[in-house]
């Protein structure tokens, strides 16, 4: 009987091994472990054995049954896995086909530049001041030390609506408006972004409408060296660490002294290239110490208060930063242009 059991085990394990699918495996299970199976048969015939043999054979029969059971389970798991794999393989797709697009728009490049600059100065304690685009002659010119008939008015031919009302030619009117609101008491620390307008014929480098960002700080003991430090900080954050700035003397009616501010070329690190026209420097800003007349007209005592102001053109900065060659692109809203400014 012992041999018979061992033989059955061998036989069953072999058939399990050979079973190619779950059905065949089940047939093996039924055939060997079923109620009418050969092992049950063997156990039934145990009555004929001597009583001391019976427990041994019984134990052996159980061992055989368990071994078969275990082999069945193992085979079943294997077959099931194979079946899943086959099924999945049949479901295979081409992962290189395009994904379902997520619809994304993006900000206008000028907005990107303006927001970046806003954030940079907000980080230095500035607030953002906005004001009217249609200004009075007073705020656009007179309050900025440009009385009627001043030769510098030639420098910015303007779109007048009436003799006293015009489209602002710069964002500087916000300097005067903000200072007036402070009623002669500092500190004032603002930047003013916005649209401005000049009587220019639109071409690759001119636009009758463009944007400007103006900054103003007024307090006791503001020094020109503070202007230099502030703008150096700005240049490094906007164009990268390691940038330097230089001041060149210039003239603006609303500042005295006035300077133009160059940033060392971010493309060539100051060695000279096409971006900086070989000079190593790029003109980025106009700046200066607020003219005492401007302070006084806005209600500040120019003996106790000093201030600095600076202005820049987001178009120019965007053109330099992204290598844009024609200012008209900013206002044509060609999607092939706009779409290029998605990346963070």
């Amino acid at each position: 009987m012992k041999e018979r059991l061992h033989e059955l085990e061998r036989e069953a394990l072999e058939k399990i091994e050979q079973a190619g699918d779950l059905k065949a495996l089940n047939d093996v299970r039924v055939a060997y472990l079923g109620k009418k199976g050969p092992i049950t048969e063997v156990l039934r015939g145990m009555g004929a054995l001597p009583s001391e043999e019976r427990p041994k054979i019984g134990a052996l029969a159980n061992e055989v049954r368990e071994a078969i059971q275990k082999a069945l389970e193992a085979k079943q798991t294997k077959l099931e896995e194979e079946e899943v794999e086959r099924k999945l393989a049949a479901e295979a797709i081409d992962v290189t086909l395009p994904g379902r697009p997520v619809k994304l728009g993006n900000p206008h490049p000028l907005t990107r530049v303006i927001e970046e600059i806003e954030d940079l100065f907000i980080g230095m304690g500035y607030t953002v001041a906005e004001g009217p685009e249609v200004e009075t002659d007073y705020y656009n010119f007179e309050a900025l030390n440009l009385p009627k008939g001043h030769p510098a008015r030639d420098m910015q031919d303007s779109f007048y609506i009436t003799e006293e009302i015009l489209l602002r030619t710069h964002t500087s009117p916000m300097q005067a408006r903000t200072m007036e609101k402070h009623r002669g008491r500092g500190p004032v620390k603002i930047i003013c972004p916005g649209k401005v307008y000049r009587r220019d014929t639109d071409d690759a480098t001119h636009s009758h409408q463009f944007t400007q960002i103006e900054g103003l700080v007024v307090d006791r003991n503001i020094r020109m060296s503070d202007l230099k430090g502030t703008l150096r900080e700005f240049a490094r954050k906007l164009f990268g660490e390691g940038r330097d700035i230089r001041f060149r003397p210039s003239f603006f009616p609303f500042t005295e002294p006035s300077v133009e501010v160059d940033v060392s070329c971010f493309r060539c690190e100051g060695h000279g290239c096409s971006v900086c026209k070989g000079t190593g420097w790029i003109e980025i800003l106009g700046a200066g110490m607020v003219h005492p007349n401007v302070l006084e007209m806005a209600g500040f005592d120019s003996k106790t208060y000093t201030g600095f102001a600076f202005g820049m053109g987001p178009e120019r900065i965007a053109m330099l930063k992204y290598g844009i060659d024609d200012i008209r692109h900013f206002y044509q809203n060609d999607l092939r242009f706009l779409q290029q400014f998605l990346r963070v």
């Binding site: 907005t111 307008y197 706009l338």
Partner: peptide
């Protein structure tokens, strides 16, 4: 929000 919704920002002339 508008950009996330799939629109591009335009800037056009005031005049």
């Amino acid at each position: 929000y508008f950009e996330g919704a799939g629109l591009f920002q335009a800037i056009t002339y005031s005049l």
